[in-house]
Design a protein around this nucleic acid. Structure first.
Lengths: 247, 247
DNA sequence: GGGCGCGAAATTGCATACACTTAATCAAGG
DNA sequence: CCTTGATTAAGTGTATGCAATTTCGCGCCC
């Protein structure tokens, strides 16, 4: 009826029609393979927030029985990427606007925490990796390959997580980043954003290299807050043109 | 061979021998019921870290098939309470000492964040609830009921999470608290600790009531760091008496 | 005309059977 | 005696069938 529904339908279609590239028996179990595949599709946006995940349909699509499908869905539900209710099926998580703002807020603090700890604990090897990722991002500012930029950007942040030397913190920070990802895809298509993002990164890197904990925290917090503001502007532009009606 | 093994055996035994109090069909599914039951046993210590979780045995014990057992285990693994490896079964999570220290560190910052936000955002109703929980804890300092103290203590912290008005942050902070819980059970049997804990709480409550964000963060961070130090002393006393050999 | 209860279809939840992987046991060889 | 290999038992992974719950459509009553 509305434009929003049309978008959802199309998004589901993209995923449904793709042939099953499921590698059977490569060390991993089918359930694990399905979990990774579905998580990837959600994060990449092939499965849009709110899209229904029909067990039987997924089983057909991936040529497996419902058992591994159900186990994958349970794990995705536990990680927050989807929402399941008993006897009522699962849908891709569609957090309320408030919940999403909360996730950005938490992400800003978690990333800041990682950056601050990294400033204190980063090793020489990790310094080199961080500098390398940072440089690689610089060369890509004008290349305009959003997918690749996204990959290196993830590596950049992951290097900082590693530098914090707190595996649990790294785990929950990455999980938060993943959960927010479906709602900030559009940002990487904005070339102007890439240059600004790199400038923000530069402040973070400089502070970490200096061992400036407070500076690294502030710089990273500001960076993520900027990311959040960009999202809010994007969400606003969608709602004002009637492309979105929820939240 | 060692005392540690005896302890594990006994811990498993406690859980294994208990009759299945599983309420079938009370709105929740069996898998959900199992997840809650197993999580409770892990958090309470009835299932000790490192204890094996045999699917067939659990199915027998709870009088259900392996299907819901497996789904419950998948969810527990996703939440970090247990660790599963393909074809190799599941065991109650037994984080390394480093990982555990990282969890305490993250917990200190997350709880501090909640306290700081609560200082800025707590509503009058939440203030009353916080004061009430705080007062109830005061009356229990000398009562010496560890189980009940623990419950009210959880309510106290949950009230602060609510006051922060960030549901995602509340979610991950609580999850962290739950994951750490199996390793700090002993603390609530120490009556002297209860009085000190209440004094630390008092600083937190005062700062929140005053709207002092930095003060609330510092007070809460110090509180959790104290909790961590207490654990470390406990762990040290265990390892020095040969009751523990891992980590 | 609109709300309400009933029945059927669709979908999820659970049980069971079987296939596959792992690791433990035992045998033979070095 | 230790090492190495196959064999086998134990336990997990997957498929399939059935039971239970929800939801939608339809007729009925208000």
């Amino acid at each position: 009826m509305t434009d929003a529904d049309q978008i959802d339908e199309r998004a589901i279609g993209i995923a449904s029609e793709s042939a099953p590239p499921l590698v059977r028996g490569s060390g991993r179990t089918l359930a694990e393979e399905l979990r990774l595949q579905l998580a990837d599709e959600i994060v990449r946006g092939a499965l849009a927030p709110g899209a229904a995940l029909d067990e039987t349909e997924l089983a057909r699509r991936f040529q497996v029985s419902r058992t591994p499908v159900r186990e994958a869905l349970r794990q995705l539900a536990a990680s927050g990427l989807i929402e399941s209710r008993a006897h009522r099926g699962s849908v891709v998580a569609q957090p309320s606007h408030e919940h999403l703002i909360g996730m950005f807020e938490a992400m800003a603090e978690l990333e800041a925490l990682c950056a601050g700890l990294a400033a204190a604990r980063i090793t020489p090897v990790e310094r080199k990796a961080l500098a390398a990722a940072h440089e690689e991002l610089r060369t890509m500012i004008q290349s305009g390959d959003p997918q690749r930029y996204h990959e290196i950007n993830e590596a950049f942040h992951s290097t900082i997580y590693a530098g914090a030397h707190n595996s649990y913190l790294a785990e929950i920070t990455l999980a938060t980043r993943v959960r927010v990802q479906p709602f900030r895809r559009a940002q990487f298509r904005n070339l102007g954003r890439l240059a600004k993002s790199h400038m923000e990164h530069d402040l973070v890197v400089t502070a970490i290299m200096r061992g400036d904990q407070d500076g690294a925290m502030r710089a990273m917090r500001d960076h993520i807050i900027t990311v959040r503001v960009e999202y809010e502007m994007y969400a606003l532009s969608l709602s004002s043109t009637g492309l979105r009606d929820r939240n």
